[in-house]
Design a protein around this nucleic acid. Structure first.
Length: 885
RNA sequence: GGGCGGGUAGCUCAGCUGGGAGAGCGCCACGCUUACACCGUGGAUGUCACAGGUUCAAGUCCUGUCCCGCCUACCA
């Protein structure tokens, strides 16, 4: 007896909850630090602690779980390492907003209290996403869950910082950085987003100091002229040959500044002269370094003009722009104002315009690290899939600039650097020092900055495994086998993990990187809260169940292509789950009395052999596709097998056995096949649909103790290969389809039982058809069926041509000869096309001489087939005409 | 400016190393046949963006053009 009776339809919610708890309770997600089995490991791209599950997460984690479950079932000691990211700016913003509601800022609390408050927030509200991942069915080893700010990972961060510093790979200095006046911190180049801005280009007249004339410069940011310390022209620009070395008097400011020559300036834009503001523009900064120019910052960290801005002091940068333009105009310095579209950098977090600013920051010398990271991919130590991304990776790595790792935030890993108040010594230390090692002074002050969040994420593949301790986990699971992530963080994260992994561990962090596409809405637009077009994965799960949702994600993940998500598609796969559920009801009902011990001597029927051979092919295709991360192909293969082979054909073919219309031996054979095939089918599907397959697996095996999760993934069974059975069955299926076609086209009621005559060309075929007559009679709904060799075309029939045989359906009582005539003519026209095409090809001398032999043979066979088919149809048509006249 | 991806059935897409244009949804017709109407059976539907080229043979390879999307750079 089965343990459970199945409900009318699959009930996802109750089942998902029960089974997930069951998996957890039995520690089925657990990976062993030490094991005989080969290891397979993935680290999760750690979601932000502030994060809520969106479609991107859903896709990312579904794909990981599919691979993880697949590998686990294949017998690997499989680790899926979970955790979260502290997300510096994002989290600090959330808590600051909370404070703002109380009318306070973080400065009211002070650093220590503020950080305590963030931790409090984290404990209370953080990590909602972890439970959401569980609803997705993710089989992470939750006992190992890590957080980038936890003790172990913080130690790893410090260790790496100190090591980099001691090896001269980290330096501090005054450089121009991207400054967010709202977040009040520097951010890296990657964190700047560029947006089109419709603004103006202003041409300004700068008079020469000696009164001999003037030079015109163009700018999009007139307010920065307050900090100009030079004007630059191209050294080869004939127009300005004589003025290089001269001075101009800066309007409004009355500062005397030089005209210099630098290759950076292009001759064909504007006047060919550029104002140089080293403190407010990265290119100008670079020029200033080359020419030893003075650097005057006129804008402060809030985006206001500072004391170097004279009368403009205190104005915000946009007000200052207006005022400067007005004053220039008044003074007669403004030559021209024209509309101009250019792009402006914005903070990726808060969309505030970036203010390039000179400030003291910490940097990582990145070139040496990048060099190794490039080499590793070149040598194939890490493979990027799809391979097209490798070019992008190289491009970026080759043009990489030093990484600004300091952030002026309070939430994050504080930089482990102290300054001695007595002797000025800089102390970089693994542990907090209490006195200066040089002068023993105790007035130490720690650097105020924290590290870029991505600094700790870049260590993720080994820090989560216990590094710097030499753990068993590290030995077993590093380098990890695979990283699955969106291409949008290829540079932010993947590239940096490569660099850090190679630097610290001397080994790549992962062997494969699978980059999946972005999830978009139905119209192909990026989903975002502000656009209101985002689909909430949890709503989809509630509505259609996790299995259907996951399968949809997999089915639409073709490599390198964006996923356009719509609820309609998920619904389609909910129907698929339902189909499986119903098929299992039929299956279980007919396995109720199945006794495996009696099956030793029984022999499989043709349909049994056929479905086993077909399953073999499905197994091969799914395995092969998953090995190559072709999720859509794998999903399609399963879908097709289950619905269109197992359900549409096999279950129908087996019904006579179910309903006792065959011998007990044959019934047993069918039960055996059904049991084996259904079980393997569930196994094959499990990585995609973990819940429904587990539920059915337990019923099938009459035990809620066994889990499908730890059963072996199917392999193609040599003994099940049977090409002959596949061919024979295909022929019978074609005969059945042919009768159905006639029935459909001729509008013969499905309930009307037909008498059918079949003409075959030889004994062998006759044998096959006769042996399969049961199948044909049942599935084509026949009253009777007769087979003869070279049967003469009877009168008053509809004719179907199936390869070498003819199917005659008597039209007695139907007598729609006009319909049959139309049907035949349509068929003939179709065949004629094929025939012409093949004939034309074979008449071509070049084709016969140059094409591959197999191609020619194929074409000849095709022509022969078309000819025969055509002749048979013509004959049928003539007979029909004869009869009518 | 540089780079990448895409333009295939009404819609969304698949089509890997060149040899018979596919799937799902939608549509039409017929059916409550003892798992399933969240179903079954049958059917219709394509100048594979455009123009050249290579080849016996091109949706597939090459060149160019036109659209669409993304990444990257940031010429004031």
């Amino acid at each position: 007896m089965f343990t459970r009776e199945l409900s009318k339809a699959f009930e996802p919610h109750e089942t998902e909850k029960r089974l997930y708890e069951y998996w957890i309770k039995n520690k089925l997600f657990h990976a062993r630090d030490e094991s005989e089995a080969k290891a397979f490991s993935i680290v999760i791209p750690p979601p932000n602690v502030t994060g809520m599950l969106h479609m991107g997460h859903a896709l990312n984690n579904t794909l990981q779980d599919i691979i993880v479950r697949f590998k686990r079932m294949q017998g690997y000691n499989t680790l899926w390492m979970p955790g979260m990211d502290h997300a510096g700016i994002a989290t600090q913003n959330v808590v600051e907003k909370e404070l703002a509601k109380e009318g306070k800022s973080r400065h009211d609390l002070g650093r220590e209290k503020f950080v305590a408050r963030v931790w409090e927030w984290k404990e209370k509200y953080g990590g909602v996403i972890i439970n959401q991942l569980k609803r997705l069915g993710c089989s992470c080893d939750w006992d190992r869950q890590r957080f980038t700010m936890d003790e172990g990972l913080s130690r790893a961060v410090r260790e790496v910082f100190v090591r980099l510093y001691n090896e001269g790979m980290i330096y501090q200095g005054d450089y121009i950085v991207n400054w967010c006046p709202r977040c009040h911190t520097a951010i890296s180049d990657l964190e700047v987003e560029f947006k089109q801005d419709n603004s103006f280009l202003w041409d300004i007249r700068y008079p020469f100091a000696d009164g001999s004339g003037e030079i015109i410069v163009a700018t999009t940011r007139p307010e920065t002229m307050l900090g100009d310390t030079a004007v630059a022209v191209n050294p080869d620009d004939d127009r300005y040959k004589d003025v290089v070395g001269k001075y101009i008097i800066l309007p409004l400011v009355n500062r005397k500044i030089p005209i210099i020559a630098d290759e950076y300036v292009t001759t064909d834009f504007g006047s060919g002269a550029v104002k140089i503001t080293p403190a407010s523009d990265p290119n100008d900064f670079a020029i200033a370094q080359r020419h030893n120019l003075e650097i005057i910052s006129v804008i402060d960290g809030l985006g206001n003009i500072n004391e170097h801005g004279g009368v403009y002091k205190g104005l915000d940068r946009y007000e200052a722009r207006k005022q400067v333009v007005t004053d220039l105009e008044k003074g007669g310095y403004l030559v021209k104002t024209e509309p101009y579209t250019h792009s402006v950098g914005q903070c990726y977090r808060c969309k505030t315009d970036i203010e390039p600013m000179v400030s003291k920051q910490w940097f990582v010398k990145i070139k040496p690290l990048a060099k190794q990271a490039i080499a590793a991919v070149v040598k194939g130590k890490t493979k990027i899939v799809p391979g097209t991304w490798e070019a992008t990776y190289f491009e970026w790595m080759n043009n990489i600039r030093d990484w600004c790792i300091s952030r002026q935030l309070w939430w994050g890993h504080r930089i482990p650097v102290w300054y001695c108040g007595d002797c000025g010594k800089v102390i970089v230390s693994l542990t907090d020092p209490d006195k200066c090692p040089d002068c023993s002074g105790a007035s130490l002050r720690q650097d105020e900055d924290v590290l870029d969040t991505w600094f700790s994420s870049s260590l993720w593949p080994f820090s989560t495994l216990g590094w710097p301790a030499k753990t068993e986990a590290l030995k077993t699971f590093y380098p990890t086998s695979l990283l699955v992530t969106g291409f949008d963080i290829l540079f932010f994260w993947v590239a940096r993990m490569m660099m850090m992994g190679l630097y610290v561990m001397k080994e790549v962090p992962f062997k494969d990187v699978y980059l999946h596409a972005l999830v978009r809405d139905e119209k192909g637009e990026k989903m975002s809260k502000s656009k209101g077009n985002s689909i909430d994965p949890l709503v989809m799960i509630d509505q259609y169940g996790t299995d259907a949702f996951r399968f949809t994600l997999a089915a639409y993940t073709a490599q390198g292509r964006d996923v356009r998500m719509s609820a309609e598609r998920i619904e389609g796969y909910k129907f698929f789950v339902n189909k499986i559920w119903n098929a299992s009801k039929l299956t279980f009902a007919n396995l109720e009395d199945y006794d495996e011990s009696k099956t030793a001597a029984v022999e499989d029927s043709l349909s049994d052999k056929w479905i086993k051979a077909r399953l073999n092919r499905a197994v091969e295709e799914v395995t092969h596709s998953l090995d190559k991360y072709q999720f859509n192909d794998a999903a399609a293969a399963i879908y097709h097998f289950i619905w269109h082979e197992f359900c549409d054909w096999y279950l129908e073919l087996s019904k006579p056995a179910f309903y006792g219309k065959v011998s007990p031996e044959q019934r047993l054979a069918t039960q055996r096949t059904l049991y084996d095939v259904f079980g393997k089918m569930l196994l094959l599907l499990h990585p995609f649909m973990p819940f429904v397959t587990e539920e059915l697996w337990q019923v099938l095996n009459r035990s809620d103790e066994k889990s499908i999760m730890i059963s072996s993934f199917p392999v193609a069974e040599k003994a099940w290969e049977d090409e002959a059975a596949e061919k024979e069955m295909e022929l019978l299926m074609n005969v059945i389809t042919s009768v159905r076609n006639i029935r459909g086209e001729m509008q013969i009621s499905p309930s009307r039982k037909l008498d059918v005559l079949i003409s075959v060309s030889d004994e062998k075929l006759k044998g096959i058809i006769e042996a399969g007559s049961n199948y044909i009679v049942n599935l084509a709904n026949l009253k009777s069926m007769a087979v003869e060799i070279n049967l003469a075309e009877p009168k008053g029939v509809a004719t179907g041509v199936v390869g070498p045989l003819l199917v005659f359906v008597p039209l007695t009582g139907i007598v729609d000869f006009a319909g049959e005539k139309a049907r035949l003519e349509k068929e003939i026209a179709k065949v004629q096309k094929d025939l012409d095409k093949s004939a034309r090809k074979l008449a071509n001398r070049d084709f016969c001489e140059k094409a591959a032999e197999a191609a020619i043979k194929k074409e000849e066979d095709k022509l022969k087939e078309s000819k025969e088919r055509h002749a048979a149809l013509e004959k049928a048509l003539n007979k029909l005409k004869e009869m009518q006249s």
